[in-house]
């Protein structure tokens, strides 16, 4: 029996029209040019996972860069602003664009997470996208986990990232069934057949 491949680095791509996901407001904050990432340590069960959280230029105009920047992603986080309808409507575009640019091997099962951000704004009085509406969209897309967050107040962000790590790892465990640690040519041929049947 193969032992699970213990990965400790997860590449997570943040997309959407609402920035400020994992950054506090500050004067030093600048719009991302090209792409950058920060790393965040997350404890998942008994494992310490390093998450590489990628922030790319928000403007659609720079989407073509995704081919390079999304490569090898383990999870994609779609963020919208609960106070702006347009940002919610754009989730479809972002998701599709990601799948085109990153072209993951199994697009139907690629882990996404949706964050409804800025729930703190004006005490929630400006809110235009309801939680129900957002959850319906997530269900329709194959049961994407949904979180409501306030990056500014640091509300629910950690929980969201734990879930993100979990999801990305779940995917990995699924891979492990088919990809033993030690691969020999014959074994690979067999597993390929097996996975083809499933």
């Amino acid at each position: 029996m193969a032992t699970a491949r213990k990965r400790t680095l997860l590449k997570v791509i943040i997309l959407g029209d609402s920035g400020y996901v994992n950054k506090k407001f500050s004067n030093a904050y600048k719009a991302t040019i090209g792409a950058d990432f920060l790393t965040k340590e997350v404890q998942v069960d008994d494992r310490l996972i390093t998450m590489q959280i990628w922030d790319t230029a928000g403007q659609e105009r720079f989407q073509s860069l995704g081919v390079a920047f999304y490569r090898g992603a383990d999870c994609c986080v779609l963020v919208y602003d609960v106070n702006t309808t347009k940002t919610f409507e754009n989730l479809d575009n972002w998701r599709d664009e990601f799948l085109i640019q990153a072209s993951p091997s199994d697009p139907d099962n690629f882990p996404f997470v949706v964050l409804g951000n800025k729930i703190d704004l004006e005490g929630g009085n400006n809110r235009v996208v309801s939680e129900k509406k957002a959850k319906a969209w997530c269900a329709q897309k194959g049961g994407i986990p949904y979180f409501e967050t306030s990056a500014k107040e640091d509300y629910n962000v950690d929980q969201a990232f734990k879930c993100i790590a979990h999801n990305a790892l779940k995917n990995e465990e699924a891979e492990d069934i088919y990809l033993p640690d030690v691969i020999d040519v014959n074994a690979t041929a067999t597993t390929k057949k097996a996975s083809g049947c499933c």
């Binding site: 600048k30 040019i33 090209g34 792409a35 860069l65 390079a68 920047f69």
Partner: peptide, 15 residues
């Protein structure tokens, strides 16, 4: 693709 130099070139080393 040299995208790692993207920021350098896009805004001429401003950052």
């Amino acid at each position: 693709n040299y995208f790692f130099c993207y920021r350098w070139v896009l805004i001429t080393f401003k950052r």
